[in-house]
Design a protein around this nucleic acid. Structure first.
Lengths: 247, 247
DNA sequence: TCCGGCGGTTGATCCAGGTCAACGAGGAAC
DNA sequence: GTTCCTCGTTGACCTGGATCAACCGCCGGA
């Protein structure tokens, strides 16, 4: 095989990428790496893939061999029970990492689905382990990312295990608001990429309940909703609802 | 300071330990390590600590600097909301790892409490990162452990988000049964170390509901319960309840 | 041995959220 | 533009599990 002829034809959705110049490097895996280290990471993350709305990055049961860093777009992850019921376990946006569920068994255990046209950086997992033996800060940061995912999951358990419907939705909105803010978007106005049913699944509620609580919040002047467009009018009051001081 | 005089007096509950001879090595961090590698791990895990029933291994907010491998005994982990409500996020038994919640922020984010007199191996986290750069299989296995924790959490979300009370308790019992089996105990007869309230918190139910469902299962001949002593009479039927084929 | 208190059980009642049903609005396909 | 069709909203009603309350039994301590 010649150096100029690819063994596997490269799909048109796969492009050269560089962490060193990526606008998300303060959110994503490169956090805290020096320029030299960033250069090495560039050699690792060489592939981008785009996903049309509704398509899967991976499915439960798929062989695991890479993590995916969201470049832009929006994803949901969900697990499906043997009887077919499914549960949305999270929503991922730019700078967040998908696929860590697969490391434990070499197979993915959930589905990751694009909720709008999206793009990810492909991080071959074997190479990540290799490189993280060399770059201590990459190693440490990767561990932090996994740990934070565990902590986030604990938060969801709290949500599902001991909060009422209104608290759950308030927590959901406040969380989205924070994450949008961190990405330079408005804290108070955004489009939901997911349906009421997906929100409900995530929050352990039925879609009708989600809709009703949205209407209630709107009636009380805390938010204004029209379909997927949400404007948060009174964030302090939402925070109060979930037991946090307005700060 | 002389080599024979400890700078910090060694508490009597801290003892020399060896992974290489530990009976739990097939469950715990040493999985898949060669004898030589095991020897190195021994140098890392040099401390055991015992905890009396009701005492904390760590609390939310404590500085994170070590992981803890359960040697014997039983623990719960729980998160507490600002308003004081708390949520049990898991129960840990021999061979399982506590403390991974702390890596992300260098502070623990939950409490770990002994539910009976217990003992753990202390794994200084910095040393673990260091050693796992050297021992590939240790590195990989540690990642697997974290990943499995994430997958376990997804299971709990499924439980809390889309199962009814009976399914939740059935899933809980089947899970305990499996974990006891893996440790060489009876799959069908065990003592619960946690109260009805703790089970309820974990499952998103009130203690009265837990008690009622126990009684219902007993009435239907699937289990026999007397206080904390549980005997599972019909595991296939419990599995059916949670939608799994009896197999 | 007795006592007190925690943990567990059970009954009666209530209500948050689920279920079922009807309808409306936006958006993609043609 | 028209036609579906999915997604969202709202109303009426129902129910699983929460809440409130009484009581019991086990276990630890004096």
């Amino acid at each position: 095989m010649s150096a100029t002829i690819a063994l596997h034809p490269v799909p048109i959705d796969k492009l050269r990428v560089a962490c060193s110049t990526c606008g998300l490097k303060e959110l994503c895996l490169p956090i805290g790496l020096s320029d030299e280290e960033l250069g090495k990471l560039d050699q690792l993350v060489t592939l981008r893939r785009t996903f049309r709305k509704g398509t899967n990055v991976y499915r439960a049961g798929d062989r695991f061999d890479a993590l995916y860093a969201v470049r832009y777009g929006f994803f949901k992850t969900m697990v499906t029970a043997v009887d077919g019921r499914d549960q949305v376990t999270g929503f991922s946006m730019a700078g967040e990492l998908l696929g860590m569920d697969g490391i434990g068994t070499d197979k993915h255990t959930c589905d990751a689905v694009a909720l709008e046209d999206s793009e990810v950086c492909v991080i071959p997992y074997g190479h990540l382990e290799e490189l993280s033996r060399e770059l201590h800060s990459l190693q440490h940061h990767f561990h932090k990312v996994m740990s934070r995912e565990i902590v986030r999951d604990h938060g969801v358990m709290m949500l599902l295990g001991s909060m009422r419907a209104e608290e759950r939705l308030a927590a959901f909105l406040v969380n989205l608001s924070q994450r949008f803010t961190a990405r330079g978007y408005s804290p108070s106005e955004f489009y939901l990429r997911m349906t009421r049913e997906e929100i409900g699944s995530y929050l352990g509620l039925k879609l009708e309940t989600v809709s009703r609580v949205f209407s209630k919040f709107q009636g009380e002047g805390m938010i204004s909703v029209q379909q997927k467009h949400v404007r948060i009018i009174d964030i302090p009051r939402l925070r109060e609802l979930i037991g946090q001081r307005p700060c």
